[in-house]
Computed example of a mutant assay.
Amino acid sequence: MTDDHDGVRDLLAAWAFGALPPAEQRAVPRHLARCESCAAEAEQLRETVRLLDGPPRAGRAEGTVPAGGTPRALTAALRARPGAARVAPHAAAYAASVAGLQALLPEAEGRWSTPVVHDWDVHATVAHLLAADEPLAGRLGVGARVPDAGEDASVDWTDAWNRRTAEVIAQEHARTPEETVADWAAQAAALLAAPEARDPEPAARATTLMGVRLPVADHFVVRAFEAWIHTDDIGRALGLAVPPPPAEHLWRLVRLAVRILGLALGPTAPPVLFAVTGGEEWILGSEAEPVRAELTLDPVDFCLLVGGRHTPAEVPRRAAGDQGAVRNVLERAASLSWL
């Protein structure tokens, strides 16, 4: 048990989720009663948790999601994901993705060892997300939930990413799935309580994570993308349909993916007029040549392609013109996946 200022401050996110053991659960309120700064931070975290949970429903205690519901009830719960009104628009998609996964995970009760993707089961997939959020959390001053041995700066980011995922999964498999979920959720709440999630000004600063330099605001969108993809992975593994992100969030994912795809293709690729159904269109590749082809994808299919869940050969598309140029765009989009 700890009652010192720094020790209690490190416990606040888990306390907000009710995820502390009894001894530490009792220590936090005693400290909050005499520390105004921690009390203010704790209230902000509790408000974030309330926003993620949404309003209590009849027969449901605040902060819980009923397990064993029907697929229709689960779909309704996922579609009702809150946008976390207290966060800025750039972080709302991440808040909704976190809420969506929280709505789904009670369905994994008794099925945590169900294979999901790669060689991960449901428990390991949540552990991966715990590791995957760490780089952004660390840049925003949120401490790692799982001790890290440190990283060699010369190691390629993909190798570091894979190493940390394997390390965290190994450690979390020695704990219960409920403990892993509590730590993942507490870390997500701490991210959403950070100033960068609520104020566009500090979120505008650029930082390099996962080999790409983007504003912090865009890194929140990347986190939303990955959380949704793995929520869909878990849903498929459990035989449950997971709806796509709400439209305003989906388009944030699409626009960021198009920007990164454009950078990956570079200015010399054969130019393709790329459109996403119901949205915008862009010219990808060289601006010095006539357009060689047109390609249209559904927004969800495009995100699944970039997320590594569709292959270039199988993704539904409408295409005309130079098929080599079309194939180049599709293959480069698929190559962006690290999930």
Rank of each mutant, 00 (worst) to 15 (best):
D3C: 08
L11R: 11
A19H: 13
Q25I: 08
V28R: 13
R30S: 15
L32F: 13
A33E: 10
R34D: 05
S37N: 11
A39Y: 12
A40R: 15
Q44T: 13
R46P: 02
V49C: 15
D53S: 12
A58G: 11
G59S: 03
E62G: 09
V65C: 08
T70D: 02
P82D: 02
G83S: 04
A84R: 03
V87P: 00
A88N: 01
A91W: 03
A95H: 01
A99D: 00
Q102G: 09
L104E: 00
G110C: 04
R111C: 06
R111L: 13
H118C: 03
D119Y: 11
D121K: 05
H128T: 08
D133E: 14
R139P: 04
L140P: 03
V146K: 06
V146S: 14
D148C: 12
W157N: 06
D159E: 14
A160V: 11
N162Q: 14
A166I: 09
E167A: 15
V168R: 02
V168T: 06
I169Q: 07
A170Q: 10
Q171M: 13
H173V: 10
R175I: 11
A185H: 10
A188S: 02
A189S: 05
L191F: 01
L192M: 00
A197F: 00
A203N: 01
R205N: 00
R205W: 07
T208G: 03
R213S: 09
L214H: 04
A217D: 01
H219K: 00
I229R: 14
I229K: 07
H230M: 05
T231Y: 01
G239T: 15
P244C: 10
L253P: 03
R255W: 11
R255F: 11
V258N: 01
V258L: 09
L261W: 05
L265Q: 02
T268A: 09
V272K: 04
L273Y: 14
F274R: 07
T277V: 10
G278D: 00
G278L: 06
E280C: 07
E280L: 11
I283P: 00
A293L: 01
T296K: 05
H310G: 03
A313C: 04
G321L: 04
G321S: 01
D322W: 11
G324A: 13
V326W: 07
L330R: 03
S335R: 09
S337T: 15
L339I: 14
